[in-house]
Design a protein around this nucleic acid. Structure first.
Lengths: 236, 236
DNA sequence: GAGTGGTCTAGACCACCCC
DNA sequence: GGGTGGTCTAGACCACTCT
């Protein structure tokens, strides 16, 4: 683990362990440099990481402060990858409805930037939170990249497997959100009624080298659909 | 303007003018250093800025590449501040329904971290895109910070005024998204029907020093509600 | 004016991609 | 192995806040 990542983790741990609140002041740069025995730039890199994640904010001429948001039970729309990681303290489970190798739809092929003759893994899951249906998810994985999947992997965290099992590096994602009305079939899975509100999130995940490897559409139960986004200045 | 901001702007301009597409390669670090006559760190800082904004992605050992998303007409959920800035090429207009000084609701007071006796500016607007209703917005501005507003300012960009007119620095924001069904009154403003889907976005805007100054709730017309989010690795 | 964060530099060395 | 991006350092100097 890199120094600046380690330091960021330490600072974050410190904030949690001391249950610091929004606006609480952290030690100044000089102190942090001495405390961790690294150069100023390294501390700054750590703090930038934490700032980007919404953990702290820095005020020039004043200090480094803790940033906290006031609401529980919201799903973060950043850092997303299937959010198994986001809702640490929430019991999320999955039921696999289908796992198969097939040819992609035109839409999936376009988004994955492959031809319609190339194989993809198709995965359809229902996800539950607190025994309630949270969402229905359909994913298309480019089989040339994600070479193997089975039921066990798919019931657990697919992304952990891609990282650790396949040794691939996940890079970035583009998500598109739409609000609409539930179709009959979706409503059935979610325990709602046709015509009820829904939130669709389509996401294209790319490897670190820019190759798209996963196109997924998640349809959320509107009652559970509580999301939050922390934005940082840098252009506000 | 700082060197690294200037360089980032130049690179972004270069990408636009040459209509570069996703995956197109930019000059290597050494070239950029020479071209702009600055140190390596400064170039790296510029590239980090662009990466954070979703303009490029970098691959170690390989190069710097252009990042583009494939869909038009989506509203960015980051860099948000009322999105006058996001939809550069879209004609967004506002109709002010109300502008007054009042005492905050309990909810607004809590989110602005003030007492219910302190004055706030209350602004209610309907926003249109292409002559169609996009959203209804209610905002509460802490009057101790945003000391003055009038109809002209409120019809235009409130945030530009806060920055330039009042000389305040806007820092960061926390947004909370909910999906639900439209109430009678909201439906009226949006030209939809009671019970139709809606997307509510509540946002608390903070100054650079951490003080909350604006609490707003925007209710979107679900037909126009197309948003996108670009996420970067750093934890994926 | 003292304190504190931010920018920028020059250079050493490391980690990864791809041929 | 050559090319390329990433980390880390030590230090000079700048910009903002607060009292």
């Amino acid at each position: 683990m890199l120094k600046y990542q380690h330091i960021a983790a330490e600072i974050e741990k410190y904030i949690q362990e001391h249950a610091l609140q929004q606006g609480d002041k952290l030690p100044v740069l000089d102190e942090l440099m001495v405390q961790f025995g690294v150069s100023k730039s390294t501390i700054i890199k750590s703090l930038e990481l934490l700032e980007e994640r919404g953990v702290i904010f820095q005020v020039r001429g004043s200090g480094i402060f803790v940033r906290r948001h006031g609401r529980k039970g919201y799903i973060s729309l950043l850092k997303n990858q299937g959010f198994t990681r986001d809702l640490d303290h929430f019991p999320i489970t999955s039921q696999v409805l289908e796992l198969s190798v097939r040819k992609p739809t035109r839409e999936a092929a376009t988004n994955l930037n492959i031809s319609m003759e190339q194989d993809v893994y198709y995965v359809k899951r229902v996800r539950y939170i607190y025994e309630q249906t949270l969402c229905v998810e359909e994913s298309y994985y480019n089989k040339a990249i994600v070479t193997y999947l089975n039921n066990e992997i798919v019931s657990d965290s697919i992304f952990d497997y891609i990282r650790e099992g396949l040794g691939l590096k996940i890079g970035f994602s583009d998500s598109y959100l739409h609000v609409g009305k539930l179709e009959e079939e979706e409503a059935g899975h979610l325990g709602l009624h046709k015509g009820d509100p829904k939130l669709d999130v389509e996401t294209i995940f790319h490897l670190a080298n820019g190759q798209p490897f996963d196109f997924s559409r998640i349809t959320y139960n509107y009652i559970q659909s509580q999301f939050f986004i922390q934005a940082n200045g840098h252009g506000m």
